[in-house]
Structure formats: structure tokens, C-alpha cells
Amino acid sequence: MAQAVKKPFRWHIAVFLAPAVLIYTAIMIIPLFSTLQLAMFSDVNNSQVFVGLKNFRTLFDDPRWSEQFWNALKNNTWFFIIHMLVQNPIGILLAALLSSPRLRLRVFYRTAIFIPTILSFVIAGFAWKLILSPLWGVAPNLLDLVGLKSLFQPWLGKEAYALTTLALISVWQFVGIPMMLIYAALLSIPDELLEAAECDGITGMSQFWKVKLPLILPAIGIISILTFVGNFNAFDLIYATQGALAGPDFSTDILGTFMFRTFFGFQLQLGDPNLGAAIATAMFGIILIGVSIYLFGIQRRLRRYQF
């Protein structure tokens, strides 16, 4: 009797997976592949013709397109760098302050800092446009109060400052997210561990650097990758404040606005969905590479501690 008993097929697994798989396929995977497909076609005499990689050649070889693409990529990278250098350190700092046991009104601060995150981009963009407006904004008056009026510039209208200004607006809006994630990570550090550290004489700042920070590194990693994906998909804030031409002189043009302009067209420029899809595919590629580097290069080396 060597006949093995055939295991019954475990239907419940398929049944439980089905809803998520179906929804994810319908709203993520199919659109993703149809974007890739769209990028391989071109409009010839009003019918879609397969052209292989021609759209990508146009995008990277034709100086008129590639110049815009590299400009957008460069701006996007700067946008990301500002977030990494400003948003995440501030997020960590705020979380560390919030988790300090001596702090009062903790819930109030937490909520106040997190609120901008739930605002629409349009509202945040519009509010900041008004604040920074050289005509009716409060920024020039506030600077005047402290005698620094001479420092005021029409920031959103100057090539040198516009992108950085927008990046900082975005930081203001989203600093709540790293703060919350790291705050949660800090709270999950068991008290015994901190008490043990205190017994060893590690307190205050050095406790943060030597005990807490290593423990929240995985959370910081996740935040970095979320920031990366979010920044390279960004579009709304720039569109809401600077419009589709991402002025002044394309200095705030990022991949999202470049894609929008190409895909849907702008004023007399007719939309080219195929080239737009090629840009979207390039964006997907950039994000994929970035995420892969993180997953395979960094996340695996992060040490995790079990409590």
C-alpha cells in the first residue's frame, strides 16, 4: 500500500487570496501593462501602430525631448534630496521629542504636526502661494517685523529658489508621516531595554544614538523608500502652484509634470499618449531600480532585533 494519500487541494487559500488578487490585478497590474504596451505604439494617420522602442529613442536621443527629460530628472532628484535631508531628520527629531516622557500636550503637538498631511495639495499649494505672495503675502510683513525684509524674494518666481521652496512646502506638508512612523517605532522599544541601558550608564543623547537609533533604523529605511517613491511620483503640488509649464523657465519641472504635459498636451501642444506612456514607463523604471537597490542592497543588511 505505497499509494500516498493525495492531499486535498486547499481551496480556502485561493478563496482568501482571490479578492486581493483580483482587485490588485484590475487596478494595478493591468493598467501597468497597458501603459507599457501604449509606450510601444505610435499614432500614424490616426491609427495605433506598433513601433517597438521608437518612443524611448525619441525620449532619450532627440535633444528636444531628452533635454526636458534630464532636466525633469535632475529637478526630481533635488526634490528628493531636500526631502531626505530636511523632512526625515526633522521627522526623527520630532518623534524623539514626542516620545520624551516629560513632554506635556503631546497629543496636541502630534495632531497639529500631522494635520497638513491630510490637507489636499491644492489647499497646501494655494495657502503657501498666498503666504509667499510678494503682494498680499504675510511672509514679507513677518520678515519686516524682525527687520529682515531685505531677505525677502519672490521665491516662487525665481529660477534659483522656486524648486527648493516647493520642496520645503512639501516637507512642511508631509513631515507628519515620518514623525508618526518613527514615533510608533520608538514606542515599541521595550522599557526593560532602556532601563538596562540606564543601568549601564547610557542616558540622554547617547542613549538615543546608541540604543534607540539602531532599533528604529528599519523604520527609517521604510520611510526613505516611501519618500523616494512619493517624490518620483510627485506632480500635484507643482501643478497646483506653478502650472503645467512648471515655471519659471522649467526650473520646477519634475517627471510628473513633464509626463502630464506630454500625455495630455498643453494649450496648443497636442497630447501624445504614446510618448507620455513612455515617460511613465521610464518613471516606473527609475522607481523600480531605486526600490530594488534598497530591497537587495540595504534592507537585507539592516540588523533586526527581536525583543
Binding site: K129, L132, S133, P134, L135, P140, F152, Q153, P154, W155, L156, G157, K158, P248
Partner: peptide
């Protein structure tokens, strides 16, 4: 006007 660069 002042700051016309950022005037919409």
C-alpha cells in the same frame, strides 16, 4: 509691481 516674478 514688487516681486512681479512671482505675481500670478
Amino acid at each position: 509691481g514688487d516681486g512681479y516674478e512671482a505675481q500670478s
